[in-house]
């Protein structure tokens, strides 16, 4: 089994965002970066699968500036076997089509059976990389997985649907699975594994050699919304109904009520 997990590094979402000089994206100065939350679920799921089958191999890939090496090292420390870095100091200028094309350029030579990605990135939030990648590679695709298992060459995934409903789908490998909050609890990398990950391979590949696709959509302008309170007020109905709604919100949007 060959497994690939694709990750992105995103700014700490509690930061204060300012537009960059061109006004087309946010300025990275003064921001602290970390692994995209949904990608942590993807790494965890991939590592769990990797651990079940000692003969399998798990690679982690990221397209982005030099700083993403830290996120790659975290994924290695969590249990990925090797990493692929496609350096691009201005990756934010690329649209999802271009990023997916670069990943596909790498993945089509890799004979992967399964590819995990986050459901979306916390900063751009396009949620397109997984489905585009599946299309380009001719893989089956399951989005927003909150449960995952594999039997032979068939993946079974629980999916989150609109309005809180859940569905179960089966997909034949090779497949792309995009991961949603609730799928798992990502492990902390242990300190010995962080140190041992220094010895794992990080291959550096050239973006231009993987894909020369032009952008299909451009980002014109970035603006930060005015700060407002983060509260949510539940109204209407009797106390029991409101309590039910509150429980649903807590289950859907937070981890407090997950086992």
């Amino acid at each position: 089994m060959k497994i690939l997990v694709c990750i992105k590094q995103i700014p700490d979402m509690a930061s204060k965002f300012k537009p960059n000089a061109a006004g087309s994206w946010f300025s990275e100065a003064d921001l602290a970066f970390r692994m995209n939350e949904y990608d942590e679920y993807a790494v965890e799921e991939a590592v769990k699968l990797r651990e079940k089958d000692p003969a399998s191999e798990l690679a982690v890939l990221s397209v982005g500036p030099a700083r993403v090496v830290e996120a790659l090292k975290k994924a290695l420390a969590m249990g990925c076997d090797r990493a692929v870095h496609v350096p691009d100091e201005e990756a934010y200028r690329k649209d999802p089509w271009q990023i997916a094309s670069i990943i596909a350029g790498y993945a089509k030579k890799g004979n992967f059976d399964i590819i995990f990605t986050g459901m979306q990135s916390q900063d751009r939030g396009s949620a397109q990389i997984g489905p585009l990648l599946a299309g380009m590679l001719g893989f089956s695709c399951v989005t927003t997985a909150i449960g995952f298992s594999l039997e032979g060459r068939t993946a079974t995934a629980k999916r989150e649907l609109e309005g809180g409903a859940k569905g179960v789908v089966k997909a034949a490998l090779p497949a792309v699975i995009t991961c949603q909050l609730g799928l798992n609890t990502p492990r902390y990398p242990t300190l010995p594994n962080i140190m041992k990950a220094k010895k794992k391979e990080i291959a550096v590949l050239n973006a231009a050699e993987l894909s020369s696709e032009a952008a299909l959509a451009g980002t014109e302008k970035f603006y930060a919304p005015v700060k407002k309170g983060t509260g949510l007020v539940l109204e209407g109905g009797d106390a029991a109904a409101l309590a039910g709604k509150l429980i649903d919100v807590l289950k859907e949007k937070t981890t407090v009520l997950r086992g």
Binding site: V69, E70, K73, K74, A77, Y188, P189, L191, I194, K198
Partner: peptide, 14 residues
């Protein structure tokens, strides 16, 4: 170093 940053962020997350 990246390892030191990772240990720092792991400690912070925990």
């Amino acid at each position: 170093t990246e390892e030191q940053k990772l240990i720092q962020s792991t400690a912070r997350d925990f």
